[in-house]
């Protein structure tokens, strides 16, 4: 089956077409641009570009897989709404995968996958031989709890290498779309029901309830 995979949880705007047959995965087209403010402009042309590169049309896509964060909200939402609307428009199912798993899922040993949460914070999770331990978190690099991770990887790791207690990959690594499809493969192959994608925000909106207005009489 042919899967459209999208992730906009980091500054990389990413789209790919991945063929999934039994447990074989094959990347047939891939577009990526590191452009933290370009999600809404770049993503749709990337989908069209991937289809053209692979010599396919929209009718050839059987399912959509989307990273659901955590990630900076505005860009993350663009990818998720694109995935949900494309799937709805094409009448095919959509499945969500934690974007950090697209980084940590490819690691060996104990690794910290970290992306840039802005405001001097990182989104992170710990992986043991590629398997995530617990839920993703957000905090300042200097405030990480004891993770026993041997190294850190991801955009958040390269950016904050100096503040992290473990070695960090100096090159930014972005969520691997083939990995996201692999993690969704059981659902894809089983024809699981389409999902309502829920972003991993990990933070509440910044807003203070208004002070009570002064009383007035009628």
């Amino acid at each position: 089956m042919r899967v459209l995979a999208l992730d906009t949880s980091t500054s990389a705007v990413q789209a790919a077409l991945v063929d999934l047959d039994d447990d074989e995965l094959f990347l047939t087209a891939f577009r990526r641009e590191v452009n933290a403010r370009g999600h809404v402009e770049r993503l749709a042309p990337f989908i069209e570009g991937c289809l053209a590169d692979a010599g396919r049309t929209r009718a050839d896509v059987d399912a959509v897989v989307s990273g659901v964060g955590p990630g900076p909200f505005t860009g993350l939402r663009v990818g998720m709404v694109t995935a949900a609307a494309f799937a709805d428009g094409a009448g095919i199912p959509v499945y969500g995968v934690c974007s950090l798993d697209g980084i940590g899922g490819n690691t060996r040993g104990r690794a910290l996958a970290a992306t840039d949460a802005r405001r001097k914070e990182i989104y992170w999770a710990v992986y043991d031989d590629g398997r995530r331990e617990g839920e993703p978190q957000v905090c300042r690099p200097s405030e990480l709890p004891e993770t026993r991770a041997d190294y850190a990887i991801g955009e958040g790791a390269s950016k904050y290498a100096g503040e992290l207690p473990m070695d960090a990959e100096t090159e930014p690594v972005y969520p691997d779309l083939v990995k996201l499809v692999e993690l969704a493969a059981p659902r894809l192959l089983a024809g699981a029901p389409s999902e309502r994608l829920t972003p991993l925000y990990l933070r509440r909106p910044d807003a203070q309830p208004a002070a009570a207005p002064p009383a007035a009489s009628a």
Binding site: A44, V81, G89, A90
Partner: peptide, 19 residues
């Protein structure tokens, strides 16, 4: 801006998915 992007992203995806 952030609100507009949700609608624009969706509209583009519907357009690509349907032609």
């Amino acid at each position: 801006a952030g609100a507009l992007m949700v609608g624009v992203g969706a509209a583009k995806a519907y357009s690509i998915a349907t032609g």
